[in-house]
Simulated assay, not measured.
Amino acid sequence: MAPASVLARATAQAELCHIWEATYEASRAQPGSVAKKRPSGEWADYARALGANIQRRRVDLGLSQEQVAYAAGLSRYTFQKFEKGESMPGAPANPSLRNIMAICQVLGLTLDELVPKGWPDLRVGRV
């Protein structure tokens, strides 16, 4: 690469880094922003209940965590975290709809049958 194009690329990368840092800092400064918002409280209880439902059905079918995980296109580790209801210690799991649908298909359930009744109120500011 010519020196001028290397300089142009470095300048563009520096500008992108600056924009990202400014966006990140702005999101941290706003209460309830996406960057600071982590599921907790009611969601933590709900994630544990979902995990218990998954585990109960898996055990009833006589399947291992590994069998369900791989059939659903997940790693065993990820599936274990879903069953436990945690993504890391102290942080509730937040599986994607795609992952929950895949688990439902492997376990022979509909979303309604797997997902606990009584959804938590997830609205920001609870309208």
Rank of each mutant, 00 (worst) to 15 (best):
residue 100 I to Q: 03
residue 109 L to D: 03
residue 25 E to C: 02
residue 80 Q to R: 04
residue 73 G to P: 14
residue 41 G to L: 02
residue 117 K to Q: 15
residue 47 A to P: 09
residue 8 A to P: 01
residue 69 A to D: 10
residue 49 A to S: 14
residue 84 K to I: 13
residue 10 A to M: 11
residue 18 H to R: 13
residue 20 W to K: 11
residue 17 C to L: 08
residue 92 P to K: 05
residue 40 S to M: 03
residue 112 D to V: 01
residue 82 F to N: 09
residue 89 P to T: 13
residue 96 S to N: 06
residue 71 A to N: 13
residue 35 A to C: 08
residue 31 P to K: 03
residue 3 P to S: 07
residue 31 P to D: 06
residue 94 N to Q: 12
residue 1 M to A: 11
residue 79 F to K: 00
residue 115 V to Y: 09
residue 82 F to P: 08
residue 69 A to V: 11
residue 71 A to L: 10
residue 82 F to W: 12
residue 62 G to V: 10
residue 102 A to L: 07
residue 37 K to S: 13
residue 90 G to Y: 04
residue 115 V to Q: 04
residue 28 R to H: 11
residue 91 A to C: 07
residue 33 S to T: 04
residue 111 L to C: 12
residue 62 G to R: 06
residue 85 G to T: 07
residue 55 Q to W: 03
residue 22 A to S: 14
residue 13 Q to G: 05
residue 55 Q to A: 15
residue 1 M to L: 05
residue 51 G to R: 09
residue 84 K to P: 00
residue 21 E to L: 12
residue 51 G to P: 13
residue 112 D to P: 03
residue 3 P to N: 06
residue 67 Q to Y: 01
residue 8 A to N: 09
residue 95 P to N: 09
residue 124 V to P: 01
residue 42 E to G: 10
residue 125 G to S: 08
residue 62 G to K: 07
residue 124 V to R: 06
residue 34 V to F: 10
residue 111 L to Q: 05
residue 86 E to Y: 13
residue 122 L to Y: 01
residue 63 L to T: 02
residue 8 A to L: 12
residue 37 K to M: 06
residue 98 R to I: 10
residue 13 Q to F: 04
residue 7 L to E: 15
residue 100 I to A: 04
residue 78 T to S: 14
residue 39 P to Q: 06
residue 126 R to D: 13
residue 81 K to P: 02
residue 101 M to Y: 01
residue 93 A to L: 08
residue 3 P to V: 01
residue 99 N to D: 11
residue 96 S to K: 14
residue 11 T to W: 01
residue 100 I to L: 13
residue 90 G to V: 11
residue 102 A to C: 09
residue 26 A to Y: 03
residue 124 V to S: 04
residue 86 E to A: 10
residue 71 A to M: 08
residue 123 R to E: 14
residue 117 K to S: 14
residue 34 V to S: 10
residue 77 Y to I: 06
residue 126 R to V: 12
residue 85 G to L: 10
residue 114 L to A: 05
residue 110 T to Y: 05
residue 30 Q to C: 02
residue 35 A to V: 15
